[in-house]
Amino acid sequence: MDVTREIEFGARSDIGCVRESNEDSYGAAPEIGVFVLSDGMGGLECGEVAGRLAVETVIRECRGARSVRADEGPANGISGVSTESNQLVAAIRAANQRIYQTAQNSEAGRQMGATIVAVRFTGERMSLAHVGDSRAYRLRGSRLEQLTRDHSFVAEQMRQGRMTELEAGQSGLQNVLLRALGVAEQVDVDVTEELMLDDDTILLCSDGLTRELTDAQIAAVLNDCEEAQDAADQLIQAAKQAGGGDNITAVVLRSAARPAGAFTRIGRWLRHS
């Protein structure tokens, strides 16, 4: 079976219009089908360091991953997902340790944290793991679907039916995360698996993008752009025009086998409408 799959990717990260530094990071290891995005936090240079550490560690661990199977390896293997997904989770746990240790060893025991969203493509399977409020979306047909559920206070309130989407969007508590890398020795990583169809577009992004743009705006850009890099550039541009209150990062991923051109797009639209 084909192990990795050729993925066309486009990515851009921007400081935005308000912040003085860019604490977002992203990284790609196309040869193993791994793509990662992280939003660091901690002030001074700590946020930048945390985000970079997260991305570097996940990619390095995935490159060197030994086979950790759910049914053999240590007790922390997650059942119901593939070996590759478990390796991705192990890589994120390693990143957590690394950031946590770095914070502990720094003078004054600085607080450092980072979100992470990471995908790994194996054949038609996409492993998706995340911690925090950086998100993954999928455009399938003309429909945009958020694949991750934020580990934030407002998202938790919405899940429990205690806040509407509107209230959450206006809440002063949008910045409160319930999970992040680097805060404790152990971290709970959400992992899931998705089917990657040839027509699908995957977007990884930091909250700087989703605070500025609606789902409809994001879907329109992803739909309109033939090239993944073009889509990433335009998303950043649109988020900056909308205010750019935070750092903005977008990673756009498509199957390289994706059929393009007007006819296939019309066909795609017909099938899904």
Binding site: M41, G43, L44, A108, R110, Q111, F153, N175, V176, L177
Partner: peptide, 19 residues
């Protein structure tokens, strides 16, 4: 918990915090 600045400056608007 997320405001790690040693000098304990007032938190910046929009700074992310982690519980």
């Amino acid at each position: 918990a997320g405001n790690g600045d040693a000098k304990q400056a007032a938190p910046k608007l929009n700074e992310t915090v982690i519980l």
